[in-house]
């Protein structure tokens, strides 16, 4: 129990890490949005602005060798899991130094060395993969866990239901982190489901289901700590629903006509970074000086990543034909 209690009360260092990570994700995403709108980036990009507390609160409970499967809105998970910012940005730019040599893009960022099995362009597809990673950990007798991030939309897909049941039946150390931001593309979850708390669905599979305020990184961190501990020590999966919000549209460029300015503003008032910042300032864990320092560090790290990406070469045509098979 001592280790679980320690996880519930993050120390100053962990709190500062959470703050700096959330700021870094926000800064990265704002820059991505800006570069997309000015035509430097192309394709389908989904930014994580507003939801930072979920990725950071959860990944703050993970080890480097724990596994994560991500979603189409995956940059935040990648950063919180420790992926290299330069190579992430180079991937978004489609450059040869990108995480995937420019062949994956925003929706397919991955880095096995950091346990990131991949962002995913298919809603709900990461859940079975996370089950498999957890199965692999069980068979190799490690105590690694797997986290599957998913959205509220994915919780209506078949793979969600099959995966929760499979994880329960096979005793897989998985935490299903449901980022309920209220919208599947442009459709509200009120329309698409008849339960208020999507975590209630866990009961149907005989596993714990927990709902937390996803705008409160400490609440996420605490609940994730319990879920990760259950997975690691008892091989019990958990469905952890984090109620959150995305400040921008579904994809960069989506005007979001399906929701009101007032609604967006109300969530911005509860901003996860501001909340933590105020608390840390009050508690003296952050000073006005260190606050500015973290923000400047984030800006510089993102600038550096953009410079790296812009200077990286475009992949040669031969790269497009490589990696279809190991050999054929």
């Amino acid at each position: 129990m001592t280790s679980m209690q320690a996880q519930r009360r993050p120390d100053k260092e962990k709190l500062r890490w959470m703050y700096s990570q959330m700021v870094l994700i926000r800064t990265f995403e704002e820059r991505v949005q800006q570069d997309y709108m000015s035509g430097k980036l192309v394709g389908a990009i989904h930014v994580y602005v507003g939801e930072e507390a979920v990725a950071v609160g959860v990944c703050g409970q993970l080890r480097k060798d724990d596994y994560v499967t991500s979603t189409h809105r995956g940059h935040g998970h990648c950063i919180a899991k420790g992926l290299d910012l330069r190579r992430m940005m180079a991937e978004l730019y489609g450059k040869v130094d990108g995480q995937c040599r420019g062949k994956g893009g925003s929706m397919h960022l991955c880095d096995l060395e950091r346990g990131m099995l991949g962002a995913n362009g298919i809603v709900s597809a990461g859940l079975p993969l996370a089950c498999g990673a957890a199965l692999s950990a069980n068979l190799r007798h490690t105590d690694q866990v797997a986290v599957a991030f998913l959205g509220d939309g994915a919780s209506n897909a078949g793979a969600f239901h099959e995966s929760l049941n499979l994880a329960a039946v096979l005793k897989l150390p998985v935490v299903f982190v449901l980022e309920n931001n209220g919208y599947a593309d442009a459709t509200h979850i009120r329309y698409a489901a008849r339960v208020t708390n999507l975590a209630d669905r866990a009961a149907g599979y005989g596993i714990p289901g927990v709902t937390v305020d996803g705008m409160d990184v400490l609440a996420v961190h605490e609940a994730a700590g319990e879920a990760v501990a259950r997975a690691r020590s008892m091989r019990t999966p958990t469905l952890l629903e984090c109620k959150t919000y995305r400040y921008y549209g579904h994809y960069v460029g989506d005007a979001g006509q399906y929701r009101s300015k007032e609604e967006v503003e109300a969530y911005r008032q509860k901003d996860c970074i501001s909340q933590l910042e105020q608390r840390l300032l009050q508690e003296g864990i952050l000073s006005e000086g260190t606050r500015r320092e973290y923000r400047e560090q984030a800006t510089e790290a993102v600038e550096d990543a953009v410079r790296f990406a812009q200077n990286s070469p475009i992949p040669g045509p031969e790269v497009g034909l490589e990696d279809v098979y190991v050999r054929y």
């Binding site: 499967t69 096995l112 597809a125 079975p128 089950c131 498999g132 692999s136 499979l166 096979l170």
Partner: peptide, 21 residues
């Protein structure tokens, strides 16, 4: 043995293959 859940268990086989099995 798995439940009748091809999506989940074939996906899990793929995830396990990515991670060392």
């Amino acid at each position: 043995d798995t439940p009748i859940s091809e999506m989940a268990f074939i996906g899990a086989a793929v995830g396990a293959a990515m991670t060392g099995l």
